[in-house]
């Protein structure tokens, strides 16, 4: 019977027949029209999709910054609250006018002192001079810290 069919179809060799071996998911053809309609509407009114598509790089950038910020801020807040607090209190000193003036005056003095030692004598610093500078730094820091405690 199969041979007759093959001869009729000009297929003189054994073939598995013309039945379709492929299948589709259940209800595929029934739902096809709706999906096609959706695609046509999307193509004809691309405004919403277009705006989102245009904003996508900017949104990605904002999201990346947020992630980086959270990765830095949250562990600092949770695991090192003291440092965070200290940093905050330092900022308070800077915010006050008196504290600010004191810091500026100290920086100015230090700058003039350092400039005079370098320009008046030699280009190279002597070990003693370096030690003096370090001592001055510590002194200045102590002064600023004391100022912050007073406030």
């Amino acid at each position: 019977m199969r041979d007759d069919k093959n001869i009729q179809n000009n297929n003189p060799f054994e073939m598995p027949g013309k039945e379709n071996p492929f299948s589709t998911p259940e209800g595929y053809f029934e739902s096809f029209n709706d999906r096609l309609q959706g695609k046509i509407e999307e193509q004809e009114n691309p405004q919403k999709g277009k705006v989102l598509h245009m904003l996508r790089p900017a949104l990605g950038l904002v999201a990346s910054f947020l992630v980086v910020f959270l990765l830095l801020y949250v562990p600092l807040k949770i695991y090192m609250p003291k440092i965070a607090e200290q940093y905050y209190s330092k900022e308070q000193v800077v915010d006050t006018t008196e504290g600010m003036e004191a810091i500026l005056a100290e920086i100015e003095d230090q700058f003039f002192l350092f400039e005079s030692t370098v320009t008046n004598e030699t280009e190279e610093l002597e070990p003693d001079q370096i030690m003096d500078c370090i001592a001055m730094e510590i002194k200045d820091y102590d002064l600023i810290f004391a100022e912050s405690l007073n406030n």
Partner: peptide, 8 residues
Amino acid sequence: HFSGDEIQ
């Protein structure tokens, strides 16, 4: 989604 046998 292929329901054919080995020959197919």
